[in-house]
Design a protein around this nucleic acid. Structure first.
Lengths: 235, 235
DNA sequence: CATAGCAATTTTATCGATAAAATATTGACT
DNA sequence: AGTCAATATTTTATCGATAAAATTGCTATG
């Protein structure tokens, strides 16, 4: 993933204790490679190819791909292997819509149960986000991994007190999916982003529930439109 | 799972074409065994044990367990194997709460986009459910697999037009989780069930959105309380 | 020229064996 | 007795080889 740290915000599918197994390490690397677009949508994932690329035997590879297929990032065809999940306008829309629904609930619930610790964490997350540059201007404009990490952290922090780990996991999965589409539109340098988070943050701190959920959803909708437009331009 | 047919309602994690791979077959069987309580919560799943039980080598077994751990039905401990996910009052509550949230959205959306085909399918599902016996009276009272299948079908049909496959999948996963708790309370012969679906069905057909979502949520809440009580009695 | 059947090739899925890690056991020492 | 360390045992995780299935290419036939 763009962020050096794997899949942002501590993936709870790989929490546990001690040092990871290679199956888990490979799982993370493949996931990051797909989300960051280094493994193209639709690409056939021949076992030998993947095996070679990540320097592991077939068993851990299959294990990793099996897990990814449960998350919808990889598609499994019985008896004929795996491939990177394709992308489509329809899916982009579905992901966005579902994300708006779920995060609306999560934010409502969080704002109904605010705690000092939650608020502190949110303040910190917002502060860090606001101090990080949106893009890198190296050669050609590209996403800034650090910003992506803070961005994910902010959205995670926003809904952290919703009271359901399940819901938080679904939101995280949807965030990962969205990220993949956003990366595709990266060269277009989608605007906004920098300015949209402040009002969301402020509404949350002010406990203005209706305003907060409204802003959050339109934040996602706007991003969707930008990406959508970019995809249409390609085709 | 109680229903002879695996995990009710066509599991979309195992859709695809042709005949299943053993990894997939084992995945289904383990899942069913866990949900039906034949593999007890918390049980250590030693590879050799599982391997022997299902007559397959370690590779497909690990693949199956990996998939199940993505669904939260199995827990993976890095470098120290797998176990059946434990159960707890807290989790029961979390599952139920989350389910109420998500199905409320799904039902609202479905009722906002009703189609004749959707309605037909719902009518059929309800009809079949209403004609099936809730329990089997063999020796000791037990769940009726056929009823469980119709029950799952009915709830699936109810929200089938929500417009998001992702949301439907989350709802299905939550339904599976709930089922496991319900099985535990089966000997207590939880009442209701038979009578609660009719008003939900009627409200849906009448497009009475508020009433429908209200009834649906209380349906889940009531079930939760029954199971909760049963769990408390055991401890 | 299209197509059905067959053989050769590639690729997947599974097995069984080994290496690596965790757990249990023993015995020395305080 | 209780703790700790060293060793033995169990169990997990990974590898490499094989079997099974799909794909490709070829040939014969309508």
């Amino acid at each position: 993933m763009a962020a050096g740290a794997s899949t942002l915000v501590r993936n709870e599918t790989v929490p546990d204790s001690s040092r990871a197994t290679t199956a888990t390490a490979v799982y993370q690397r493949i996931k990051d490679d797909i989300l960051d677009g280094r493994l193209a949508p639709g690409l056939k994932l021949r076992i030998e190819f993947v095996s070679e690329r990540y320097g592991a035997g077939s068993s851990p590879i299959r294990e990793a791909l099996s897990r990814l297929s449960s998350e919808g990032i990889v598609i499994r065809h019985e008896q004929r292997g795996f491939c990177v999940a394709p992308i489509s306008l329809d899916e982009l829309r579905e992901v966005t819509t579902t994300r708006c629904w779920l995060e609306t609930i999560a934010l409502r619930e969080t704002l109904a149960n605010p705690t000092p610790q939650w608020e502190d964490a949110l303040v910190i997350a917002y502060h860090r986000l606001s101090r990080t540059k949106r893009f890198l201007d190296d050669v050609e404009p590209s996403l800034n991994p650090a910003w992506e990490e803070q961005h994910a952290n902010f959205h995670e922090a926003l809904i952290a007190n919703c009271g359901s780990n399940l819901l938080r996991r679904y939101c995280r999965d949807l965030r990962d999916q969205s990220y993949r589409y956003r990366v595709l539109a990266a060269p277009a340098r989608p605007p906004g982003g920098e300015i949209e988070h402040q009002p969301i943050f402020e509404a949350a701190i002010a406990r203005d529930v209706e305003r907060a959920v409204q802003l959050l959803s339109s934040h996602y909708r706007i991003t969707q439109r930008v990406v959508e437009q970019h995809l249409l331009n390609l085709a």
